[in-house]
């Protein structure tokens, strides 16, 4: 929901002309290609679920009413394709939650990217893993080394928490003209200008904002 509300009016127009399946495909591709977990597309997923349920009911009706089996099988194929996208999207997210569970729960910002169910899942995963580590190893170590999150008590940061590698490179395609800063602040400013449809190998951090605002798609 959050990602939809802050779209500008120009983006809204392209959104309005795009079907939910297209949006779901985009969300799925971005989620698969991004190194970190992206904000949950709550509104879109709700709509997709609703449409899937509707079509499932329709198909049952068609079968009962003796509609041409060819037509029924075509509707079924369309349904299968949408369901695949939805399932795959949710599973990629579960994979990422499992991989970065402590990281996802560490900050509010990271946690806000998860759906309610995903939060529950992440918490129970993290609790179980922490409990397992403690019982099998950590509690048998000297006191200074018993934290799940830190190598030892003298560590300043949580250095045993796997984090997504944001300096990695992704492939992206721009939908419209965009100009992006190549480097972070404090360094020599240099921009890259993308025309509509241009393909780039680019550092994830550079396009992170543009992906979340819907200007750029990962491929």
């Amino acid at each position: 929901m959050a990602s939809n509300s802050d779209l500008g009016s120009a983006d809204f127009e392209t959104l309005a002309s795009t079907s939910d399946v297209e949006l779901l495909k985009r969300a799925w591709r971005n989620e698969k290609a991004a190194p970190e977990i992206l904000p949950y597309e709550a509104a879109l997923i709700e709509r997709a679920k609703g449409q899937i349920e509707l079509v499932e009911e329709n198909i049952e009706d068609y079968v009962e009413n003796g509609i041409d089996p060819l037509v029924v099988s075509l509707y079924q194929m369309d349904l299968d394709r949408t369901q695949f996208l939805l399932r795959s999207y949710l599973r990629v997210r579960l994979l990422k939650i499992e991989k970065f569970m402590f990281h996802n729960l560490k900050s509010e910002e990271a946690e806000s990217r998860l759906s309610e169910q995903e939060k529950v899942f992440a918490k129970s995963c993290a609790d179980d893993l922490a409990k397992h580590f403690e019982e099998s190893v950590l509690l048998k170590l000297p006191e200074n080394y018993q934290s799940v999150l830190k190598q030892s008590l003298i560590s300043e940061v949580d250095d045993m928490v796997p984090q997504p590698h944001l300096d990695t490179f992704v492939v992206c395609r721009s939908k419209n003209f965009v100009s992006l800063n190549l480097y972070e602040e404090g360094e020599s400013p240099e921009t890259v200008e993308m025309e509509r449809g241009d393909l780039y190998f680019i550092r994830y951090k550079i396009v992170k904002g543009a992906i979340e605002s819907g200007k750029i798609d990962l491929i």
Binding site: L182, V192, L199, Y200, F201, I202, R203, I206, I219
Partner: peptide
């Protein structure tokens, strides 16, 4: 080192 343009490269090639 931060952005490399690849024009007209297809899905499979990428």
């Amino acid at each position: 080192t931060s952005a490399v343009k690849i024009s007209n490269v297809s899905a499979m090639e990428v």
